[in-house]
Design a protein around this nucleic acid. Sequence first.
DNA 1: CGTTGCGTTGAGAGGCTTCAACCTAGGTGG
DNA 2: CCACCTAGGTTGAAGCCTCTCAACGCAACG
Lengths: 246, 246
Amino acid sequence: MHQSLPTRSPLVRKLERFTSLSEADRAALEGIGSHVENVPAHRDLVTEGDRPRGVPLLLEGMAYRYKVRANGARQISAYLVPGDMGDLDVALINRVDHSVGTFSPCRVAWIKPETLADIQREHSAIARALRIGTLVDEATLREWLLNVGRRSSKERLAHLFSELLLRLQVVGLATENSYALPMGQAELADTTGMSSVHVNRSLMELRREGLIALTGRTLTILDVPALKALAEFKANYLHLEERGAA
Amino acid sequence: MHQSLPTRSPLVRKLERFTSLSEADRAALEGIGSHVENVPAHRDLVTEGDRPRGVPLLLEGMAYRYKVRANGARQISAYLVPGDMGDLDVALINRVDHSVGTFSPCRVAWIKPETLADIQREHSAIARALRIGTLVDEATLREWLLNVGRRSSKERLAHLFSELLLRLQVVGLATENSYALPMGQAELADTTGMSSVHVNRSLMELRREGLIALTGRTLTILDVPALKALAEFKANYLHLEERGAA
DNA sequence: CGTTGCGTTGAGAGGCTTCAACCTAGGTGG
DNA sequence: CCACCTAGGTTGAAGCCTCTCAACGCAACG
């Protein structure tokens, strides 16, 4: 396992899973956050219909992309963990087509499109890693669609928890089998396409089967292999082994 | 409406909705298909686990992205219509994480990653349009997730049909209210996360309500505004008005 | 110490699935 | 040219999964 130093920024830790970065690359990334903002929980970073105002890079906290229907029904389409960012090329469109909200208090750096363009031009390794990052975002979306469309309620939650375990481990925010889960059951419901009542019942079953412990806002996976097996979780879509498999 | 000449390639027609192209840009795009292949219906263009072998550009026919579970359950995550292509940056990853199959006989041009890189470097307008294209692909995935996660069965089909109407109109493959629908009810089921039996019943209801006529492989939308209203269809995520709204 | 948000549990209804049979059209071969 | 065959559309019935509505518990907070 290529373990990064704990002091390193989550973005560097994430991108180093995709490609090798030079010291200059890392330095460029550390200084990317021109304008850092502290955002409370349950606020919108981006609202559907707005003009794009730069690319948000999440430094701390957890956020999510979502869309709402006229009747108030909400579908969450992505979780953003530290090191994740908005679409690289938002500047190319006039109006954003979805919203981004915070689950917990977040520290976010707003990157100017020009800055991003400069970095991509001057640091080809970073450019490559960022592109792989958006490829992974898209692959994750496809996996979530499979999750909602073709998995049972328990499997959906198991899959989500398995994915988060891996993604948070990459940025050093999860132990071998546990991490903080800032969202409530209603948000899990809007993520997995279920009702919050049914999320509750499914969680109870996962607990009863000894697969997870979820108290307060900490999730502990009591049997990681079993949970992954239940979810039929394959990590290939996260492309975490690009470096090694060259 | 900016109507392209019918002789123009579907890719040019599509990209011209995103940005203005010069005559040189158009010429570069017309000649992009180095190696054109004819693929029968129900074949895989790309298979999950393979190494990427270039970027497929669909010239004729209809294809789809999908993933399958161990139990055989399948989820379709995108439809490819003429002018659509695979991920721009596939060359950056070692193994593809999903498959692409054909609904109907297809003519596809395989573009070499170098060719694509050259074109993007030498034609900034094309580069911009292609990036908007992948932004739209991702936005469409989010819309499909909302569709499967938070819409009723009839609404899902209505939304899918509304989206296809617009996308096919862009490349000149749909009339004001009808187009060819090459896939069967089982495929519609795997697209919308339903069983094929329930797709059938939902289609029957849409017919009974006078919204659609679906005979053979031709779909006619008898009441376009009503179908869009039922689906709560908003076209913003397709970003078809980027040029005008500059 | 009341309020409030969220998790938990119960009951009933309904949407959707599964299994299965039947029908229809198109293709094949006699 | 017709009969058979097969794939896919259509319909019925039964049951389960999931939803909605609703009540209640509990812990954090003011």
